[in-house]
Design a binder for these strands. Structure first.
Lengths: 198, 198
DNA sequence: TAGTATAGTAAACATTCGTTCACTTTGTCA
DNA sequence: TGACAAAGTGAACGAATGTTTACTATACTA
């Protein structure tokens, strides 16, 4: 059996990669070679050296300027498309990889999260309790979901520019459009929404 | 003005923290002290040493077993609640911090992402093009959103157990419930959903 | 069964690491 | 103006780092 060998090797490698991932998740950094010694239960640094070399070859780690660092493949989750009837839904090939943080957050410096309350945006699939990622900015274009202060009251709504005037709308037929009496100040634009089940 | 001093200091610190964050985002690791020298444009390692000490005090970095590592505050985005009329929406105090990856992904090893196609779950706020986080498992409880194979066809639906029988439902009145002719095999449970706008 | 690649051990190495000490410069407040 | 804290410089240090070389044990292949 030709594949037997390669699979055994692979599982061991995956095991070790898993141990490194666990370490990384806990410590937010890669273990040093000495630490890998303990993690792997080995006793020669050269063993670690070889293992790391293979992980670099496999594309999970990399070196830049002699420093070891994880690649994006190290973090990313496999992203698959739902092929209607096809089988190879979890096959190794044709996989994309995606890191949620990178995918969702453009500029971390100017972003923050907001826990949504209310049902005024259910039409856009934003429910009570969802968390939206907001990018701080004072300008937005018509159709953007904005965090704004309308006549001193904070709200999360859809920005609509009809000619000269600007107003806010809900995504729920229950609520009427909001026309500012005096001020309408925009503080940020919703870039993404996330929701956890259970 | 008492605050003037502290604010000036803070911005400098924030600047430097920002530079470290930028480095981290690019290299997926913290810069060494020598690298910080370049990043900060300084020329004595001891300067870096002092700066790092302050960042540790401020709670952005930490040491464990003599190794420098970022804290969760280093990564996290501020999470705020929408106080109806209150002002201090972006105030430093009373802030929660949240890392999306940690928040959304429970067990990275057994999780993968799936790009949703179709409108069968719009009732749950899961739209065409959204990405769901799925945890691999073969068992689920009634009400879970599951990735399943029903009579050889892959689908993402709500699992319903009515007594002995098990079937799948949509979250869209357009579609009828699906009762398996022969087989119904569960492959994973949807733990979260994310959607990017624009 | 002999041959050979794979995995691990052991010791030695220069390099880089973070830290400490002593000193200088800058800026603020009384 | 003088005093004092904050911010930065420069050199020196032991300790830990990743890498190399040489050797051993295991296991698959022919």
């Amino acid at each position: 059996m030709k594949m037997g060998v390669r699979n055994d090797k692979k599982t061991t490698m995956q095991d070790r990669l898993g141990k490194i991932k666990t370490f990384y998740k806990k410590h937010k950094r890669l273990p040093s070679y000495s630490e890998m010694l303990q993690i792997f239960g080995l006793s020669s640094k050269n063993s670690v050296f070889k293992i790391v070399s293979k992980l670099i070859e496999a594309g999970f780690l990399k070196k830049e300027e002699d420093k070891l660092a994880p690649t994006s493949k190290f973090f990313a989750l496999p992203l698959i498309g739902l092929v209607k009837a096809g089988f190879p839904i979890l096959a190794e090939e044709n996989r994309d990889y995606l890191t949620l943080d990178d995918y969702l957050i453009g500029d971390p410096q100017s972003s923050f999260l907001l826990k949504v309350s209310g049902d005024s945006l259910i039409g856009l699939g934003i429910f009570d309790g969802d968390i939206v990622i907001i990018e701080k900015k004072r300008l937005a274009t018509s159709g953007d979901i904005v965090l704004a202060q309308i006549d001193r009251e904070w709200t999360l709504k859809i920005l609509k520019k009809d000619g000269m005037r600007t107003h806010l709308e809900s995504a729920n037929p229950k609520y009427p459009p909001f026309y500012p009496r005096n001020e309408l100040e925009i503080f940020g634009v919703v870039k993404a929404v996330v929701r956890k089940f259970n």
